[in-house]
């Protein structure tokens, strides 16, 4: 059975807490709540009483050659313990080197060395959290000549080695496919779709030379089309609209969820 949710954003707190929003779950950015206390944590506790919550991270930096930040893991573990989330996810990317944190989801070369490092880091995180993580495919603007495998081959290997599940961002597949000139259908065909637990849908913008993963627009037609292709082949997944900028009224996002439901294959749409 598929489920449908939204990213919880500040402009919608009141509606999520004061009304019955027709979603099966919400997703929050983990780092926004990895704080000591105060109103944000209280709001998350209240939301959790009403909806299942997925924790989506942006700062674990699972591709860092230096390894993971233990302080970060400890904070995330505490949050996981309190919220008992539906999923804990982060990205196939890196952010930090010794003494530096870019606060961006930077691309990895898909090499055997990187695979070894990513798997070790995911293993460490899953041990610390005592649960499986979902790893999300990134959108990227640079690829590396030294890559020895495709991104989908890399993701498959990561999942095989660590047992982690996947968060498939359909917009990210589309953005990277356009930017790097690969076939998004071949990408989907190469993935272990039985490991996909969650799907992100979002919008993007046209930059000067590249598509940019801005999450500031409605889901565009090519992403809906690719989603229809994915959902026909995937098992039960949690589908979510991910909007991070130019946040529209909640009704607009709920309308996008209606669209997502409408694209389910007939056999499971009921």
């Amino acid at each position: 059975m598929h489920s449908f949710g939204l990213g919880l954003r500040k402009p919608h707190y009141t509606e999520f807490l004061g009304t019955e929003v027709p979603v099966d779950f919400v997703e929050v950015i983990s780092e926004n709540f990895m704080i000591d206390g105060g109103r944000p944590r209280d709001i998350l506790r209240q939301v959790r009483e009403r909806y299942p919550v997925a924790l989506h991270g942006v700062s674990m930096s699972i591709g860092s050659a230096q390894g993971l930040d233990r302080g970060y893991l400890a904070r995330l573990r505490a949050l996981v313990g309190e919220i008992e989330p539906l999923f804990v996810s982060d990205h196939l990317s890196w952010s930090s080197t010794p003494g530096f944190n870019s606060h961006d989801l930077l691309p990895l070369p898909y090499t055997a060395e990187a695979l070894s490092i990513v798997c070790a880091n995911i293993g460490q995180a899953q041990d610390a959290l005592s649960r499986n993580m979902l790893i999300e495919n990134p959108s990227s603007y640079v690829s590396f000549a030294q890559s020895e495998m495709t991104e989908w081959e890399f993701l498959r290997a990561v999942s095989d080695r660590t047992g982690c599940d996947l968060l498939l961002d359909v917009n990210n597949i589309y953005v990277s496919a356009v930017n790097h000139g690969f076939d998004p259908v071949a990408y989907v065909a190469g993935l272990p779709l039985d490991r996909v637990r969650q799907v992100h849908l979002a919008g993007h913008s046209q930059g000067e030379n590249l598509l940019i993963d801005t999450h500031d627009k409605p889901v565009p037609a090519p992403v809906w089309s690719l989603f229809a292709h994915v959902i026909e082949r995937a098992g039960p997944v949690a589908v979510m609209i991910e909007r991070d900028d130019n946040i529209p009224p909640l009704t607009d996002l709920l309308a996008e969820l209606v669209m997502a439901r409408a694209l389910l294959p007939r056999k499971v749409a009921a």
Binding site: S102, H103, D104, N209, L210
Partner: peptide, 24 residues
């Protein structure tokens, strides 16, 4: 340190880096 074809993408990442700190 990066291939010439990587330059447009590198500019995106550098812009993101500075913009996120400025926005913060």
């Amino acid at each position: 340190a990066f291939a010439p074809e990587a330059q447009p993408g590198l500019l995106v990442y550098q812009n993101n880096y500075r913009a996120s700190l400025m926005a913060c």
